[in-house]
Each structure stands twice: as C-alpha cells, then as structure tokens.
Design a protein around this nucleic acid. Sequence first.
DNA 1: TTCACTATTGACAGTTCTGTATATAAGAGC
DNA 2: GCTCTTATATACAGAACTGTCAATAGTGAA
Lengths: 210, 210
Amino acid sequence: MPWVKGRMAKRTRRTVEEARAAILDAAEAVLHEVGPAGLRVTAVAKRAGMAHPNVLHHFGTREGLLKALTTRTVERSTERAVRAIQAAVVAGPEHRKESLARVLDAVYEGEQGRLMAWLVLSRRVDDEERLDMEPLVKLTHAWRTSTLGPGDIQETRRLILLSALAMLGDSIAGEGLVESLELGTGEQGRRDFRAWLAGFLIEQIEGRRE
Amino acid sequence: MPWVKGRMAKRTRRTVEEARAAILDAAEAVLHEVGPAGLRVTAVAKRAGMAHPNVLHHFGTREGLLKALTTRTVERSTERAVRAIQAAVVAGPEHRKESLARVLDAVYEGEQGRLMAWLVLSRRVDDEERLDMEPLVKLTHAWRTSTLGPGDIQETRRLILLSALAMLGDSIAGEGLVESLELGTGEQGRRDFRAWLAGFLIEQIEGRRE
DNA sequence: TTCACTATTGACAGTTCTGTATATAAGAGC
DNA sequence: GCTCTTATATACAGAACTGTCAATAGTGAA
C-alpha cells in the first residue's frame, strides 16, 4: 500500500548523543514542573521539538526514559557536590565560611534540588541508585580537620546529614517558608539563610572543638 | 428503556461525612505512594471500597478531591505542630531537650511529612494554602525566652526554618541518607538523629545567650 | 552518485482515565 | 407502611496516553 496521507514535515537529524541529550533536557524541564508521575512522553517530545515515537525510539519506554534521567541527575548532583568541596579544600582555612556557604549553594543548585526531591520522593533514587556518600564524608572530614583540628567523624556525618536534609528541604519549600517566616523575599532570602547556616555550622564545630 | 445489564452489588450507605472522610483517607494513602500527579480517582475509589463515580459525586472532580485533601493535610499539620509546642511550654524548662525532640518528632510525624512534601513540591500548598507560621514563631519564642532568657527573635525564626527544612528533608530522604551516612538503620536512626538535633539546637542557643 | 543505515515521522491500536447519564436501594421522616 | 431524598451502582462517551508499524528522509561511506 502506498503512503499518501499527510505531508511530511522538515526533519532535523541529530546524532544519537545529541538526540538523547536533547530529550533528557526536555524531560528534565518537564519533570521539574510535574514530577515523574506527571511526565508524559508526548510533552517531552513536544518540548524537544520532535514527534513522540522518536523519544520511544531512543529510550524504549517511558520508564526507560525516567531511568536514564534519574541516572544522569544523580551523577550530576554528586559530581557537583564533590567538586564544590574540593574547591573548598584548596581555598584554605582562611575562607572557611565563604567556602562552606558556596558548598551549600552548590549541592542542590538551581533546579537540581527539585529534581532530586522528585526522584527521591517517588522512590526512584535509593532503590537502584543508592547514593554513595562515603567520598563526600572523607573529603568533608579532611577539610574540617585541616581547618579546625581533629574532631569526631560521627559528628561530621551528622552535620552532613543536617546540611543535606536542610538543603533538600530548602529546594522544596525554601521560598515559601523563608517568606512565611519573614526572613526575606525570594532567592535573596534563601541565600541569606544559607550564608547564616554556614556560619552557624562553623560556630557549632568550633564550640565543640576542645 | 429498562435497566437489565449486570447485577447490582450490595450497597453500604454512609452519611456524607463518613463517606467524605473514607474517601479522603483512601486518597491520602494513595497520594502517599504516588503523589498528586499519580493519583487516580479509580484507585482511590477501589481503596475506599466503592465505585469511582461515587468519589466524583462527593468531590465534583479529581481536582476538587485533591484540593480537599490538601486543605485537610495542612490543617492537621499545623494543628499538630502547635499542640506539640504548647505541650513543650507547659512541660517547663527542665525538660527542654526532650520537649524539643518531641516537637521535632511531631511536626512531620508518620506519613504527614511525605504528604506535605508531595503537596509542596507540586505547588499545591503555598499558592492557595499559604502557611501561617506566625503563631508558631510566637509560641516558640515565648518558650525559648521562658527557658533561656531573652534572645533575638530573628534567630528564633532562622532556627525554626532550619528545623522545618531539616524535618521536611528527613521525611523525604531521611531513611536513605541516614543509612548512606552510616548513622543507624531505619526508624531508629532517624529518631537518634532528631534527638541529636534537639540537643544541637539547644546547645547552639545557649552558646549564644550571653 | 549511489547505497545502506537509521533517526525521524504520520497513522493507528489498545488501554486507561475522567466525567456523565441513568437507575436503584438504603434510610429518614411522616 | 409509604414516600422522598440521595448515596451508590452500572454503563458509556470522549479524551489522553503509551507503544507499534510502516514509510521516509538525512547523512556518511563506498
């Protein structure tokens, strides 16, 4: 049977890598808004500027797309965190507070926090994608001891946990809560809080040093 | 036209209040698992043991159901928090740490934390349902000054923010992160962390008192 | 230029889901 | 008992969504 119905649109042919990246970027934007359960293959395709079967061609199924996106997000997040801490280490002890503030900013910077929150909440991270926190613990503890002298590593672990949970909460509810508590408006209020938190953590560590 | 197809099932007729409560309970359980975007009216009905049009009869639309559930969840959460803090106030200064730990436990106790996380993340709280934190601030500051003497209320606000964000993060990622950081397993690890956090907060406040 | 490969597309099938129309039975009130 | 109200049920319509299939057009290699 000949092929007559409809007129074909112009096609832009990408390499496999380009196509996959474009689709993942689009999926990330969609997921940022509606979360994994609300992610529609058609919406992703539309945002990526292609027909939806092409998305399925590259990722097999909707579920495959979500899995790939989860992997990429987790990798990027841990990468980002490790790099920020390494930067803090080389910055030296005299910039403790600024470095720590920058670490806090970096961990769930921009949309990454919301993405992680969605993925964790829908149990997509933590099952397949167990986070490996050990390098982060080692790095942080090394940084801490190098600037403040020896300390309890369990305490480091707890402080990391506190920071991680607070940053995760911040990326979910930060804007609303900062304003509800009259601690400033919008992004500035959140940055102020993070700066304060950095100082708070360092004071606490110093107070326990002896 | 006569009505012949199918045989009617036994019916249990509830009052409006009972029916609405049963449906909201079912919806809460479903939402706990899959979030607002994943909530299906049919799934709620099945869980509540009724046919799905009955759900729509009571709440109009799927959206109406979600709105009602959001309202109920926000009310319950704030109620719970306020009550826990009031209990802490009457408990007196000698039980500061235990009281604070119990407040932290209560805020997002059980499934409430996950529910709030879903609702905030999908922007269902914060638009219509702006949280009113002022009573909580007042209560907490009164408690703080009554046990520790006068202090900066801005600091109280920041500490509340830190606690709220950490508890929110805890209800989302607590289990996984506590284990990843080797700070205990399961619920016990989280309780330990909350107890430690209570002590941490109080030490910090005392250190800044003078 | 020609050819092979495959990224991309339009059309469609099957399922699922929300919302509606209509019928019925469980109670409440008389 | 009888009637009226309405919570609940079945059946169905229409839309949306995922995944399949076959056709087609870029693109690199021969």
